[in-house]
Simulated assay, not measured.
Amino acid sequence: MTASFPAPLPVLTLQSERRQDGPLVDALIARAFGPGRFTKVSERVREFATFAPEMSVCAWSGERLLGCARMWHVRVGGRPVMFLGPFAVELGERNAGFGARMITRACEFAAAAGETHVVLVGDEAYFGRVGFATAPGRAVVLPGPVDQRRVLVRALTPDAGELAGPVEPA
């Protein structure tokens, strides 16, 4: 009987998204979410938000893109904050911790740039591991229907305070 060992994890390089990465990132997002992504409230936000490539993260193994976490400038109740998404990992690379590492790095980039909060729409069971929690009540109001339990916020500084209000252009 031969023992089977899991394949070693690829060496991962996390870096800000560069202009030339755009087509590969777009293709990864299309594979991960399909055309249904265009109906989501997060897409409504991205229609008016300002892309922040310097805070967005790409995960590379050599020349192969394994994942991405995009960040966008918006305002909530008049306060400048970051909106995270889409976030995607190649199907064969999921459950290896890449996603949490990318999100953590994106939040580090945002904190280093002086941002106070990151907002996203997602599953608290997953994103809670990297510091996100449900926005209380309907404090953060997105531009369309959304399950408020999926509106999550991460404060990037201890004195960031609570967010409240509509998500609007930066």
Score class of each variant (00 low, 15 high):
5 F>Q: 03
5 F>I: 03
6 P>M: 00
6 P>W: 00
7 A>T: 00
9 L>M: 07
11 V>S: 00
12 L>S: 00
15 Q>V: 03
15 Q>G: 02
16 S>W: 03
17 E>T: 09
20 Q>H: 12
20 Q>D: 13
25 V>S: 12
26 D>F: 01
27 A>E: 10
35 P>E: 10
37 R>W: 09
41 V>H: 03
42 S>L: 08
48 F>N: 09
49 A>K: 07
50 T>P: 00
50 T>N: 06
54 E>K: 08
55 M>C: 10
58 C>N: 07
61 S>M: 00
63 E>G: 08
64 R>H: 13
74 V>R: 02
76 V>M: 06
77 G>W: 04
80 P>S: 07
80 P>Y: 06
84 L>M: 14
84 L>D: 04
91 L>G: 06
92 G>N: 07
93 E>L: 00
95 N>A: 14
95 N>I: 07
99 G>T: 03
100 A>T: 11
101 R>K: 15
102 M>A: 13
103 I>G: 12
104 T>Y: 11
104 T>D: 14
104 T>S: 15
104 T>Q: 14
106 A>R: 06
108 E>I: 09
109 F>G: 04
109 F>A: 12
111 A>L: 04
111 A>H: 05
111 A>C: 04
112 A>Q: 07
115 E>K: 11
116 T>P: 00
124 E>L: 08
127 F>M: 09
129 R>W: 08
136 P>Q: 10
137 G>P: 14
141 V>H: 10
142 L>M: 04
142 L>P: 05
143 P>D: 12
144 G>T: 04
147 D>N: 15
148 Q>D: 15
148 Q>Y: 14
150 R>Y: 14
152 L>D: 11
152 L>R: 15
154 R>T: 10
156 L>K: 08
162 E>T: 10
163 L>H: 01
166 P>T: 10
167 V>R: 11
